[in-house]
């Protein structure tokens, strides 16, 4: 029995849903971050991440598969030339959804979905890695990764500029 797609159904028909998601993916790769409803963001995330995985593969077959969803050749070019190589060492999780205040007018829950810009911190554990060989190594790196986050919590009254700098460093 086929497994139903997770998340909300969008639009009025399957074709409309496909078009909505394709347009959202195109906008996301064009602008890097987009504001949309939470339901649409949650549906867009798996699609966008699969497209980025194809962009990381980078061959002509992958490019043609992406072109069936994202019809804009310029956007596909940026996806394969810039976005794909940027995520070369990131094992998935290329996008981030942050909920924002509900929309004025219809109170719809809104969210911002963006491509993760921050460099990868901490230990990357792949599924095929043997956990026996590296036990002592990840613990030390996790402490290092969490150190910059712990620093702002000590002083809650940091100004906004300082916080922004901290975010950039992180």
């Amino acid at each position: 029995m086929p497994q139903p797609t997770k998340g909300a159904r969008l639009g009025g028909s399957p074709a409309h849903e496909k078009l909505i998601l394709a347009n959202l993916a195109t906008s996301l790769f064009e602008h890097g971050r987009i504001k949309t409803t939470e339901a649409k963001a949650r549906r867009l995330r798996p699609l966008a991440e699969k497209l980025i995985t194809k962009a990381k593969r980078g061959d002509l077959a992958a490019r043609r598969q992406v072109l069936t969803v994202v019809r804009d050749k310029g956007v596909v070019h940026t996806l394969f030339a810039e976005i794909g190589p940027k995520f070369a060492d990131r094992p998935g999780g290329y996008t981030r959804i942050t909920k924002i205040e509900p929309r004025k007018g219809d109170n719809a829950p809104m969210a911002i979905i963006e491509l993760v810009q921050e460099p990868l911190v901490g230990k990357v554990t792949t599924r095929k890695a043997e956990p026996v060989a590296e036990v002592a190594e990840p613990a030390a790196e996790v402490v290092e990764a969490e150190a910059p986050e712990a620093a702002p919590e000590v002083a809650p009254e940091v100004t906004e500029d300082v916080a922004e700098e901290a975010a950039e460093v992180k």
């Binding site: 942050t98 909920k99 924002i100 205040e101 911002i112 906004e160 916080a163 975010a167 992180k170």
Partner: peptide, 22 residues
Amino acid sequence: REPKLPHIACSACGTYDRRQVI
């Protein structure tokens, strides 16, 4: 320190998890 909805970016300073979102 402004009151905000939980799990949602603060509308006053525009941060979530100390990261500038809006």
